[in-house]
Nucleic acid binder design. Structure first.
Lengths: 371, 371
DNA sequence: CAGACGCGGGAAATCGCATTCCCCAAGTCT
DNA sequence: AGACTTGGGGAATGCGATTTCCCGCGTCTG
């Protein structure tokens, strides 16, 4: 650095040119068009002020000729924020999150916003850290589609971070975390699982096993409790049945089912896994044990991922309109909630729908409508 | 400065407060710590100059207390570019792209870069437009994982845009577009398909049907030609077999297979679809027609998506290490290619590997090794 | 017909931060 | 002991774009 100051101006320029390769600036465009920077800016972005049409066209022509692209960061320092929405997801590769992302991206583009997507890799700490970083970008909106983990410490940190962001004028929308003090799009896991349980009870199933993830993971917990509620509403007590805890993944489902088969699955008629990935693992384990899913043991999942219809037998599950959830999130973000300010925190519930397929055929000779 | 003192402070403050909700700035931190902005900056970012340790700690404490986050855009205008890598993918919901994204994100984070991801929605025009927008963000790196479409017009526009970006000091890496004049990570579709064809020929298959997408789509075209080459190398002429063109999606595969069955699939022994999604559609159509995939007709795909192992029979396919491709892309982006400047455009080929599964059992009584 | 007013252009301030310049205090060398 | 080095802090400058303020000119109105 020191020797740099000693270098003659010429070589200094080259050094500068290497580090800061000159893009075309607004000044260049203005000069090319023979107007001032102010006029060029007004011509390009429009403003309350009018610009003579021939000046506008000259500026536009100059910009096109020079391949000018406005420097977003400079605009941001001048304006205060960037027309982007920052999206934090837990996992890109998971169709659950990427489907939500699709909805958000579609809605954002319709509103002229660019979406920047970052991945928290299912870690709440990373989530907090990302929000910190994103705050530095000054996006107009931050949307978090996260894994809902009941961890009060990091959640407190997250809330702090988001509140600071909101205090600085940003808008926050959460997906699937209705208990936090921000506008939220909530997926009705409880009710979906409840209805699924009732449908299955109606189809004659009595002896069931629920395979779920640790209760820390709210999605799993909600689906678990919803399912139990549905069973009880159908007059089926959990006392007679049981649940297994495992990981929230395909292999978690596989392992649990393998263990179940090893322990002897007495007269279990149906296995409900709290997501489709786990359910696919369950089916795989059953087949490996020489059992035929849907005939020997019924299987049901939750999410309706695309491969649910490709497996044989097709998987009974609960469909979640994730793209819709994404769209709703953007709608919430763009909504003027000054009005709702006193009406409490807006929450949009996304309904789910049961999809009965071949993996849960009606139990023969027991087709009684329950209540 | 002078005229500012003329405006009533109060009204100006409210106006400022509404339009530019004040975040905590470096000045605030400096004031809180009782030092100058320069000192605060040096304490936070480090510099050639040293700062007294007690000052450092006071600045750090003040920053933490105030929840200060540096304004990236301001840093960017001052420095010239942002430490981010902009990633353009064709479709987030497609596991193909999201797997690549995972690799890129992992590598970028290891390098202290933030990834912003945008979606071109499989449109080359949109791709060009996105690159324009991204240029405005002045990221350090732009990576494009796009659908390779043979469309010279928009491709020319894309190249122009990227060249401007590079001229301004940015780094470009492409994935899967080796014919463009930029560093590229290329997936060896041709060779993968070729090897798959040889394996299948070795398993005894003779009468085959290739289901592919329009040749405009390079990925499909490469896999098609690679497969044909592999067959010919195994002494199987395409004259005796045939191909069908359809869409590059699951339903495209379904429709093609349905049509095939309707026309009567004489003695076709195997259907090769140029991607797994299409292959799953094919299997579905076969089942709907009362045929058993893998027994009545063998099926093979390409990509090794996660559900390939969940279907029954498990799908024979070609695995593509997509995460590795993403990692390699970042490696290329970070590499100092001043050296490679004259050695031509660096291209990394990602090898693929055949995965034989139950959907293509060896043809009984014909287990001859071909050549 | 004169003054008010609207309209559009340009100079300059501003945004938040990094960096450079310059001054100054303390320590070191001769 | 005086000149010199060393390193820290304050002030000024730059980055690229927006925005405010001022100003000249043509038009409208009383």
């Amino acid at each position: 650095m020191d020797d740099r100051s000693k270098t003659p101006a010429s070589s200094r320029l080259t050094a500068t040119a290497r580090q800061r390769p000159s893009s075309v600036t607004l000044q260049d465009v203005a000069r090319e068009a023979g107007v001032s920077a102010a006029t060029a800016s007004r011509a390009l972005n429009g403003s309350t002020r009018n610009v003579q049409s021939d000046n506008v066209s000259r500026v536009l022509a100059a910009a096109a000729r020079l391949g000018y692209v406005p420097h977003v960061s400079a605009q941001a320092t001048a304006k205060g924020s960037i027309p982007t929405v920052a999206l934090v997801v837990s996992d890109v590769a998971d169709p659950y999150f990427s489907s939500i992302a699709v909805g958000i991206i579609d809605a954002a583009e319709a509103g002229g916003l660019v979406v920047t997507m970052t991945v928290a890799d299912r870690s709440p700490e990373r989530e907090v850290q990302l929000v910190r970083t994103l705050r530095g970008q000054r996006p107009q909106i931050i949307i978090i589609a996260g894994s809902r983990i009941n961890d009060t410490d990091t959640r407190g940190a997250l809330i702090d971070e988001l509140k600071q962001y909101r205090a600085a004028g940003g808008r926050v929308v959460l997906i699937s975390q209705p208990e936090l003090p921000f506008p939220t799009v909530a997926i009705d896991n409880v009710d979906g699982a409840r209805l699924l349980a009732r449908e299955l009870a109606g189809a004659g199933y009595r002896r069931l096993c629920i395979i779920h993830a640790p209760h820390r993971i709210r999605t799993s917990y909600d689906r678990y409790t919803g399912f139990v509620t549905g069973l009880e509403e159908s007059g089926i007590s959990m006392d007679a049945n049981f649940a297994m805890e495992t990981e929230f993944t395909r292999s978690g489902g596989y392992e649990a089912a393998r263990e179940l088969v090893e322990r002897g699955l007495r007269n279990i008629e149906l296995i409900f896994a709290v997501n489709d990935a786990m359910a696919l693992g369950v089916m795989s384990a059953l087949r490996d044990a020489g059992l035929v899913p849907g005939r020997d043991v019924a299987v049901a999942g939750f999410d309706d991922i695309s491969s649910a219809v490709d497996v044989v037998p097709a998987l009974t599950t609960v469909t979640v309109p994730l793209r819709t959830a994404g769209l709703e999130a953007m709608r919430l973000a763009l909504a003027d909630d000054d009005a709702a300010g006193e009406a409490g925190i807006p929450t949009v519930w996304i309904p789910t729908a049961v999809r009965l397929r071949e993996s849960t055929p009606p139990v023969s000779g027991r087709l009684i409508t329950v209540r």
